[in-house]
Simulated scan of single mutants.
Amino acid sequence: MLHAIIMAGGSGTRFWPASRRATPKQLLPLAGERSMIQATRDRLDAVSPADQTYVITSKALVSPITEQLPELTACNVVGEPCRRDTAPCVGLAAALVAAKDPDAMMLVCPSDHVIEQHDRFAEGVQRGQKILEQHPNAIITFGIRPSYPAESFGYIQQGEKLPEHDAFTVECFREKPDAKTAKEYVEAGTFLWNSGIFLWRAQTILDALEKHEPEMYSHIQKIADVIGTDGFDETLQREFEAIDGKSIDYAVMERHDEVVVIEAPFDWDDVGSWQAVSRLHPHDEDGNAVVGSHIGIDSKNCIIHARPGHTIVTIDTEDLIVVQTPDATLVAPRSSEERVREAVAELDRRKMTDLM
């Protein structure tokens, strides 16, 4: 059976001031009426029922996520004791799934993507399942055909076509490139954006962690040994904290012998920063992407995000990000959006934790 894993532990600092520690971006309706995590669960419904869906998040977010996803049982929303990157997250999820279904396939999805074509998403997953039936030790990733030379995404280089399947072996993974290299990747036609969506058998990823990250695997195995017992919470706290965190890309993907990439048959957006509002929402006649109420006088190409009941007025402005919340307002050039994290760090330095 297929089990779905939603990774939802991020803090979403680039979406400050809307995103806060208690309500990070995955809990916010940034691309529609439903929150990001609710939208993720909605599209997974076609491939994995609620009782086979897990959310791995932080301890602090277990309660609000459970409230937003009442169809999931409490034991399927698991809070990590601390942040340890994606490899321990995936390992913990694999242990939970394997304890329930030793032969399970796992679909791993971040909680902050926009994929509106649910039928095409299900089609891509089903293609991956057919590959796993013939190649049970494969690790499958979904690549996105680049629409522009993005510097903010990792890339996957396609290798040889897989016989009998519309998929390719992975030649290599490439980190986020500079502008020149990104342009070369797009022009080559053999590079895809790395979506961060994965499909594999639970036992395959556990075996891969045992091979490539034996110390990490040892801690995960100790947690696995007490799943379903009274000692689970205590063991999870102790063993997870002892793990040296690492991304699943570094820990396994770049080292596994059999990695396959499927070019995703669905549209995809990685909602990573306020620039996503410009991609996901309609523009007015002056190119402004507006969520909420806005009056623009000679204002062009701005991103405006206002809460209900509040109107933002801009005059003689261009290429700005303006975000209003009840206790904080962000005004920044669109070109400086990456510096929003610096603002959050400065709040921390000043001990203004009520705004974080």
Rank of each mutant, 00 (worst) to 15 (best):
D298R: 14
G231I: 12
A4I: 06
G196Q: 06
G124D: 05
K59I: 07
E160Q: 08
Q157L: 06
L132E: 00
P163K: 03
H165L: 00
N76T: 13
E285N: 14
T53G: 14
T317P: 04
P29E: 00
A306P: 05
I37E: 05
A150W: 03
E337L: 11
L132D: 04
V62M: 05
C89H: 13
A276G: 09
G296M: 10
H256M: 04
G272F: 03
I65D: 12
P81W: 08
R339Y: 15
F153K: 06
P149L: 00
D298I: 07
G143C: 06
S195A: 10
E67W: 04
A18I: 13
I248T: 07
A104M: 04
P102L: 00
Y217T: 09
D233L: 13
E67N: 13
S63P: 15
T169Q: 04
R174G: 08
V226H: 06
A46T: 10
Q68D: 05
D233E: 14
D348P: 13
A306M: 05
P17S: 02
A122G: 05
S147V: 15
I56F: 03
A31Y: 02
L162A: 02
R307A: 14
A99P: 06
I262F: 02
K25N: 11
L330A: 09
E210T: 12
G272P: 11
R307P: 03
V271F: 09
G196Y: 00
M7W: 09
A332P: 08
K100I: 12
C172D: 14
T190N: 12
F232Y: 08
R127Y: 05
T141Y: 07
L61A: 04
E234Q: 08
P136R: 00
I312R: 05
I56G: 02
Q237M: 12
A345H: 09
G10T: 06
D267P: 09
E215G: 09
G296E: 07
C89T: 15
C302L: 09
L28Y: 03
S273L: 06
A18V: 13
D257A: 15
K180I: 14
D267M: 07
D298W: 13
I223Y: 06
E116S: 14
A50N: 10
H212W: 10
L209I: 02
S335N: 13
K222M: 11
A264G: 10
